[in-house]
Each structure stands twice: as C-alpha cells, then as structure tokens.
Amino acid sequence: MADPMKIRAKLQGDVADIRVLISHPMENGNRKDSDGKVVPAHFITQMSVEVDGKAVIQGQTGTAISRNPVFGFKVKGAKAGDKVVIKWQDNKGESRTDEAAIA
C-alpha cells in the first residue's frame, strides 16, 4: 500500500485552493538500475478530485510527471468543511484514496 497523500485544502474567498502531494515512485520505464537492468514503468495513470461529492477534476497522467508529484487545483464555489476526496490509480493497478476537509 502506498503512503498516504498529503492534502491541504484552504478556502480563499469562495475559491478553494487544494494542494496534494502524492507519494509515488513514478518510474518512466526508461531508467536503468545499478546493474544495468531497466526499471519497469510504474506511474500514475488516473487521478480524480471530488469536492463535496461532486467530481471536479478527472485526469489521466503519464510518465512525464515527476516522482512524488504535487498538484494544485482552484475550485470555485466550495464551502468550508466540504470533503475533498482524491483518488489515484497507477499502471500496476495500485490505487489510493484519501480525503480531507476544506479549512
């Protein structure tokens, strides 16, 4: 099981600023280890963000994203206390869901 995401969601006016740090190796499949063997690709393929039960972002990601990526979103019309649920899934079928409340 992957490490939990770090989610920070703050309200600024009526715009929620959501930031998330995902712990993930994000191997692009081109790198070689010290023995010269190719490290198999392992990266996040899909992620989605829900605020208060409504999907606000759904995205697909590829190997261009760095290790332990940080994403930021601005969502209008959110309220303090709304639940933010962030999900990701990678190419090996691993996934993780974490949630936080907008402060």
């Binding site: 992620m47 606000v56 759904q58 995205g59 697909q60 990526p69 994403f71 601005k74 209008k76």
Partner: peptide
C-alpha cells in the same frame, strides 16, 4: 475533452503544478 472540463460554476481555473499529460513534452 474531460481533462479540460470544468464544473458547475464557471469559469474555473485549474492550475496544475505539473502538466498531467504525456503529450506534455
């Protein structure tokens, strides 16, 4: 086109710290 989609209250900005597509290169 969902990746560019927005939700009910327009307009919305979605700044990504890193571009989430492989076409990003």
């Amino acid at each position: 086109s969902r990746r560019a989609s927005v939700w009910p209250r327009p307009p919305m900005s979605a700044p990504w710290s890193r571009l989430p597509t492989a076409s990003s290169s």
